[in-house]
Amino acid sequence: MHLAYPAVLAALLFCVGVYGVLARRNVVLVLMSVELMLNAVNLNLVAFDAWLRDALHAGQALTLFTITVAAAEIGLGLAIVLLVFRTRGTADVDRITALGDPAEAADETATEEAQAAA
């Protein structure tokens, strides 16, 4: 098999994940896009392991480790998302701006108060 096929597929899948991370508004969907990017990296690792025929099988071992770390990441990420949802009442990335620029946050709270008043 040509190495170009899995490499191109992994690159395209990674870019789809990049689009998802940048364009989605719901936190859970952003986490899903991160999973897509991690899977693209896994495909690359497996393909290059099959190509290089490493005696230690570093590519496949690293793929297994990546899958485990991704599982831990999504567990912790969803716990944080649920905590944010319980305290703030929203899972919207654009509206969780407590750690953002103070000027923008002040603007946003002003507009929210204006909306609430109206």
Partner: peptide, 15 residues
């Protein structure tokens, strides 16, 4: 597990 976790996350954040 990951997809089930994501579905639970969507449900619990009232998607």
């Amino acid at each position: 597990s990951v997809v089930v976790l994501v579905l639970f996350g969507l449900m619990l954040t009232r998607a």
